[in-house]
């Protein structure tokens, strides 16, 4: 009986450790991703505004405002995720951002817009295609997992 008790406690410890590490990994992963994504956009806001305009949802005017706002939102959320500050709020904002990006990408794909994603501005930056959509779906799923893990970690 005692042996069974120990092993279930041990199993629980392993599970908690796994949750904690997965949570940390996702937080650092998303934090780094957002900061990385924001760097070029902060350095070249006009180019980013043009990329936003290419989604043909916003005109030049709103695209300019988006270019002034979004990169800094990404950076702040990124830093907050890395530091653990206001984690409950920040993981929620992160998920909302990922979801918004997914919607933008899907609508661009449906409308057949032949544009760059504008997500990372990195070498080999991909066009809007099924792979890009899959990538964004994955991010949404992971960001929702992060919210759930955050709840578990905060309550334990």
């Amino acid at each position: 009986m005692a042996r069974q008790g120990i092993s279930s406690r041990e199993a629980q410890k392993v599970k908690n450790r796994l949750i904690k590490w997965t949570y940390l990994l996702l937080r650092i992963g998303f934090g780094s991703l957002l900061i990385y994504a924001s760097i070029y956009k902060i350095g070249s806001p006009f180019e980013f505004a043009e990329a936003v305009e290419n989604y043909r949802i916003f005109g030049t005017d709103l695209s300019l405002w988006t270019a002034v706002f979004i990169p800094y939102l990404e950076a702040i959320i990124g830093f907050a995720l890395l530091s653990g500050l206001w984690s409950e709020t920040v993981v929620l904002l992160n998920a909302v951002l990922m979801f918004l990006f997914l919607i933008l990408v899907i609508q661009a794909y449906i409308r057949g817009l032949d544009i760059r994603c504008g997500c990372f501005f990195a070498e080999g930056e991909s066009r809007i295609g099924l792979l890009k959509i899959f990538e964004n779906v994955l991010f949404v799923v992971l960001s929702i997992s992060l919210i759930k893990l955050n709840k578990i970690v905060k309550h334990s």
């Binding site: 070249s44 806001p45 006009f46 002034v68 800094y72 950076a75 702040i76 959320i77 709020t89 904002l93």
Partner: peptide, 25 residues
């Protein structure tokens, strides 16, 4: 309040940095 703070801070910092940045909007 936290969400509001983050959004407002992003906006204010964004406008300020863009004004300083020679390539900014």
């Amino acid at each position: 309040v936290q969400i509001g703070t983050i959004l407002i801070a992003s906006f204010v910092i964004g406008v300020a940095v863009n004004q300083i940045n020679p390539h900014g909007i």
